[in-house]
């Protein structure tokens, strides 16, 4: 049972979840490794606080483990379900602590970038995270899903339980609001007036 699944990267999430529900220990490890970064990253983008994002990520994954035995294959993508759970948990979290300070974005290790480049990159990502925090919750969620998670509008519509048209509108408004919020930091972001 502990034998790792062959070609694990090709196995869809819902098949791994089924294997998990059938007691496959390797599936538990692979799902953790595959989905935790997705869940934590999305929670962080919505909340801006690492500690809160950790709590949300753990709770979202806990719900996934619990629902695994009842999961119906082919009905919904596991990530779609997780994005929705994360958004709901983040909404609850923001209601409880709406004004907490934002953390700095952790920069990934990159040996090819100079220290100056890394600092500039960090400054830009911090600015983006701060600007995202200024958006209304739904706009922030739509912008993050569309432009950072890279999802298509129909999937975002399913996650947010709205129409595709409403998704497009929400994303466009969010993006405009984000541009306005970032306009005060043109130098840091590389915005030019010419």
């Amino acid at each position: 049972m502990d034998k790792p699944l062959e070609h694990a990267q090709d196995v869809p999430d819902d098949a791994l979840l089924l294997a998990y529900a059938n007691g496959d220990a390797a599936a538990a490890s692979m799902l953790t490794a595959r989905l935790t970064p997705v869940v934590f990253g999305h929670a962080y983008r919505l909340l801006g606080r690492r500690a809160d994002a950790e709590d949300v990520a753990q709770e979202a994954m806990l719900r996934l483990w619990k629902i695994a035995p009842q999961w119906r294959q082919g009905e919904a993508k596991v990530t779609t379900w997780l994005y929705r759970v994360v958004a709901n948990l983040c909404t609850d979290q923001l209601r409880r602590a709406p004004h907490a300070a934002l953390d700095a974005v952790a920069e990934p290790e990159d040996s090819t970038a100079s220290v100056t480049q890394q600092m500039q990159s960090r400054a830009r990502l911090d600015a983006l995270q701060s600007a995202l925090a200024c958006l209304p919750d739904r706009q922030r969620q739509a912008v993050v899903l569309r432009h950072i998670e890279g999802l298509a509008n129909p999937e975002i519509a399913e996650i947010m339980d709205i129409t595709v048209e409403a998704t497009e509108s929400l994303t466009a408004r969010g993006k405009r609001a984000l541009a306005r919020a970032l306009s005060s930091q043109k130098d840091a972001l590389g915005f030019t007036d010419d």
């Binding site: 059938n22 007691g23 934590f40 753990q58 974005v105």
Partner: peptide
């Protein structure tokens, strides 16, 4: 530049997964 989850969080989530995993048939 995805925001990487801390190793401790990964470990906690993996522990949850093992604790809640149904027994194999």
């Amino acid at each position: 530049a995805p925001v990487a989850p801390p190793a401790a969080l990964m470990a906690r989530i993996h522990e949850d997964a093992k604790r809640l995993q149904p027994a194999p048939p």
